[in-house]
Amino acid sequence: MARDRRPWGRDPDRRRQKTSVLVALVLASLTLITLDSRTSSPVDPARRAVGEVFGPIEVATASAIRPFTAVPDWFRSHDAMQQDLLDLQAENSDLRSQLATDDYNRNRLQEYDGLTAAARSIGYSLVPARVVGLGPSQSFSSTVTIDAGSDAGIHPDLTVVNNDGLVGRVLRVTRTTATVLLVVDPDSVVGGRVGRSMDVGFVHGRGVLGSDGRLDLELVDDSAVPSKGDTVVTWGSEASGPYVSGVPIGRITSVYTSVRDSAQRAVVDPYADLGALDLVGVVVPSGTDSDRAVIEADGGLR
């Protein structure tokens, strides 16, 4: 058929029609961008609607492939595991002796105990969830989908942690899923506190995921100098702030002076491996209604 064989043929009507379709689509995209750039975006309900439909698809896909992603673990030999066990035992006894002997470490432990006790007395619980979707780096934002939503008692601005430390905060929820902004995202700002000196500052993401994903710590007090190896924990805000206090964020790996604003900056290596997240916990107030078992502050299940 001639008209199909020659998409840019001499038929001017058809060509005009094609150009107008293209112009319409480009204008539609630009309109959408303009609408969504505003602070109270009219696109949010559409996002939620698409999430309600697509969230369960992501959950299903992730559970379908979970058996296969576990395959590499099966091939680890008995010897390798034995070696791991020995290494861990050595590390454990090493840590134990450090705790017993080192005054400084004992002090620091007390500090952490205090923080943990504070968190316990405020009464937080964890809703366990699995990461089912990871936003591509091509979108230049670091966000993940987790398989717990408003049915599980989750709402925006809750803290998300895992075994190792802070993961991020909840941005928006659907009934069955929630979108989490990771701490490495360039838009993410977390109030941080250096564990030893108690200096407060802000931790910014660099937007790089994976093994070289780092955070930048900027202290409020210009004269304070953080030292290498110090732990940074969340500073937290009272009541309804997005981050609860006392969650370990990462370890300071290097310190440098910012010439532009003559302040000390530090590079923080996050404890949580944000490129390979699986099981995470969402911090909810104690007594939250949830569709799954909730881990209470004392470690029990409810």
């Binding site: 539609a28 959408l32 996002r47 979707g133 936003g135 979108s139 966000t143 979108t179």
Partner: peptide, 13 residues
């Protein structure tokens, strides 16, 4: 629009 997207909508479109 599908989760976990968080950029300004319309850019990929």
């Amino acid at each position: 629009l599908a989760p976990p997207a968080d950029h300004v909508a319309g850019r990929w479109a």
